[in-house]
């Protein structure tokens, strides 16, 4: 299949997904009722469900899925490793720490999200500056190792907070947050989320050709005229912005940023100007399907992180086995 037709096909699937997701849910509405509500007619509750509950959640799932996929594309290219996820530099661990701290301090939702965002950015900032101080080794290796170390440090901080938290009140909330979920998303979060993700996406789109070259060894890319260090910094900032914004709203959702870029690469190849749009649509679709399952498959809300892992892990293992053979 030619890349444009893959992209259009996925876009069509996404549209179908949106329509399906709009018409299923815990509040029972028939398809005609949903259509009516979309046209701002029918019962007020139906309109509330469609416009204020389902639509924001659907859009958030798409934006977050696309953001995590885009960040995954950037990180996998930049770290020359197809098994890298957007939280490789500690963004998720930092966000988890920030959110846990806010829950421990009984702060309002906006500050929980705010601290999660700041925590994610802070963790990656810390990783970057610490890695800059190490000059003796391959910069990519140093970044990844520092990321693992700092991520572990923030995760330990989160564990400490869980120990300090009230076990019947705060601890469950922290646990739920760390498992991820879109059940609390409202139309209030959407503009800022979309804005931050869009901001992070701009450098990715503008620099899409050059990012391809980061998958070469540093000195080879440099000899082709790329400022490797500068480009990598720009990408880290952009990808971290997107990851932190996404994670701040949804809690920790793993595997999307790892698996989706891979699948997209199988569809249209690694060249970024083709890969990026396909990966983003695929990421949006993946998370939309996962979240729709999360809110409809059982009587209770299934934590989203559990579902994305349930799908992501088998795919990941399949990719590993494929990689092992070649």
């Amino acid at each position: 299949m030619k890349p444009p037709s893959v992209f259009l096909g996925l876009l069509l699937l996404l549209l179908l997904g949106v329509l399906l997701a709009l018409s299923v849910g815990k509040f029972s509405l028939s398809v005609p009722e949903v259509v009516q509500a979309l046209l701002r007619q029918g019962s007020e509750n139906a309109q509330t469900v469609v416009w204020n509950v389902r639509l924001p959640r659907i859009l958030a799932a798409i934006v977050v899925g696309a953001a995590l996929a885009a960040a995954g594309v950037a990180y996998q290219g930049m770290f020359r490793n197809p098994l890298v996820a957007p939280d490789i530099l500690g963004a998720a661990a930092g966000a988890g720490f920030g959110a846990s701290l806010a829950i421990l301090l009984s702060l309002p939702i906006l500050l929980i999200q705010g601290l999660a965002f700041v925590g994610g950015m802070l963790a990656v900032g810390l990783v970057y500056f610490m890695a800059q101080a190490v000059r003796r080794h391959d910069p990519v290796l140093v970044l990844v190792l520092t990321g693992v170390a700092v991520g572990t440090l923030f995760s330990s901080g989160t564990s400490l907070i869980k120990v300090l938290a009230d076990p019947s009140v705060q601890l469950p909330s922290i646990t739920f947050w760390l498992m991820g979920g879109l059940n609390g998303v409202t139309s209030k979060e959407l503009p800022l989320l979309t804005g931050l993700v869009g901001l992070g996406l701009i450098p990715l789109i503008l620099l899409r050709w050059r990012i391809n070259l980061l998958s070469l060894p540093d000195e080879e890319a440099a000899s082709l005229g790329v400022h490797v260090g500068r480009l990598r910094l720009v990408l880290i900032v952009a990808a971290t912005l997107m990851t932190s914004a996404a994670v701040a709203v949804t809690g920790i959702i793993g595997w999307v940023g790892l698996v989706v870029p891979h699948a997209a690469r199988l569809l249209v190849g690694p060249e970024l100007s083709r890969l990026l749009p396909v990966a983003m649509v695929l990421g949006g679709l993946f998370l939309l399907v996962a979240d729709t399952l999360a809110r409809t498959a059982a009587l209770i809300e299934i934590p989203l992180g559990i579902l994305t892992a349930a799908v992501g892990v088998p795919v990941f293992l399949a990719l590993l086995m494929r990689g092992g053979r070649s």
Binding site: G77, R80, N81, P82, L206, L207, R208, W209, R210, N212, L213, S215, L216, P217, L224, G225, V226, R265, G269, P270, E271, S273
Partner: peptide
């Protein structure tokens, strides 16, 4: 000659040689 990480086409690999002649934000 190295293994190469991602499955870029041979043409894309050769096009990477054009990078120094392109604007920062341009495609070949």
């Amino acid at each position: 000659a190295h293994q190469g990480l991602f499955a870029f086409t041979v043409e894309e690999v050769v096009l990477m040689g054009r990078t120094a002649h392109l604007g920062v934000f341009a495609l070949p």
